[in-house]
């Protein structure tokens, strides 16, 4: 019983939903602030993401007449729950609380794809043709980045001669012994490929194709309003807090001991987020076929090169 309560606490409060939501909102403030600075603007205040979300929670919900209302309304909550669960597993590995169950990397991968699926289901179920275009783009984007993302992560999994593990804590332990994966060529290549994939996973420019405001008017999210929209924003925040952490855990040795470790970890997170923001602000939106070509071409090649090098032990 105590174990169950502990588990639920991990999931709901720390380091799961509540913690990651807040962290994600802070990170999204950093995103907006840095963007504003790049664009010579002042940008919003630190409370802005919180205000946005609280406001959305208080608004009325408009349900499209043609929609599958239940699925349409449930999608953001499922997305939020799944992203939070993924966040919990990743952050438990970051904080080195307990040994994560074996094979949880695959579970995290799947859980992290559920928000995208929820966006797709929500967009398609809204009955809006523009939403359907957005859903189809999101799906194609998932197809595009999932292949190199998996390959890049496996580059770390198969780095050791024996005892390949799909467990996050196992990966952290492994890197504690053998040095971080970033110390190897394969790790660096995989990290770059995974970083690009995360940019797309987060739906940031140049891969915000599914929500292309000026083409299909927010795409899959076009019909969402009020709390449902708010929860999609929260899901994005949770993902923003999870994906950089996942990258650090898998490629960059996770969090070291003591306050110094925490500081270094925070710096690594910030660095990754800053890279996201800079890429976002120095590129136009790609076309969906360009994105497909980009991910299935150079990025996949990069990821497979990393995988091959990892198997060879480089």
């Amino acid at each position: 019983m105590a174990e169950a309560i502990e588990l639920i606490f991990y999931y709901l409060v720390f380091p799961g939903l509540a913690f990651c939501t807040i962290l994600g909102l802070v990170l999204s403030f950093i995103d907006r602030k840095v963007s504003a600075m790049v664009q010579w603007r002042v940008g919003p205040g630190p409370g802005q993401p919180f205000f946005d979300v609280v406001k959305l929670l208080g608004k009325e919900t408009v349900v499209p007449e043609e929609s599958w209302a239940r699925g349409f309304l449930a999608a953001p909550y499922v997305a939020f729950g799944a992203a939070g669960l993924a966040a919990t597993i990743v952050w438990l590995a970051v904080l080195r609380i307990g040994g994560s169950p074996p094979g949880d990397l695959i579970v995290v991968l799947y859980l992290l794809s559920i928000p995208a699926i929820a966006v797709i289901v929500g967009g398609a179920a809204s009955g809006n043709p523009l939403g359907a275009v957005g859903a189809s783009r999101e799906m194609k984007l998932v197809m595009a980045y999932e292949l190199p993302f998996v390959a890049a992560l496996l580059a770390v999994v198969f780095q050791t001669e024996d005892g390949a593990t799909l467990s996050l804590s196992g990966l952290v332990a492994l890197q504690d012994q053998a040095g971080s994966a970033m110390g190897r060529v394969s790790g660096v290549l995989g990290f770059i490929a995974a970083l690009l994939c995360c940019q797309a996973k987060l739906g940031l420019v140049p891969f915000d194709i599914a929500e292309a405001e000026c083409e299909i008017g927010e795409g899959a999210l076009i019909e969402y309003s009020g709390p449902a929209l708010g929860f999609f924003k929260l899901t994005q925040a949770v993902q923003l807090a999870t994906l950089p952490a996942l990258l650090v855990v898998v490629f960059w040795g996770g969090m070291g001991p003591g306050p110094a470790g925490v500081a270094v970890f925070a710096l690594k997170m910030l660095l990754i987020v800053t890279i996201f923001v800079l890429v976002k602000n120095t590129n136009p939106r790609a076309r969906i076929d360009q994105a497909l070509r980009f991910f299935w071409g150079p990025v996949t090649a990069l990821a497979f090169a990393a995988l091959a090098l990892a198997v060879l032990g480089v």
């Binding site: 799961g16 009325e60 499209p64 499922v78 809204s126 708010g230």
Partner: peptide
């Protein structure tokens, strides 16, 4: 856990105070 998370989300949405819902045709 997933069910708990989804329920927590819905609960939070309700605590936000918005229960009003309206049906409209899609916006294109």
């Amino acid at each position: 856990l997933l069910v708990i998370g989804v329920l927590a989300g819905i609960l939070a949405a309700h605590l936000g105070g918005a229960r009003a819902r309206r049906v409209r045709s899609v916006f294109i």
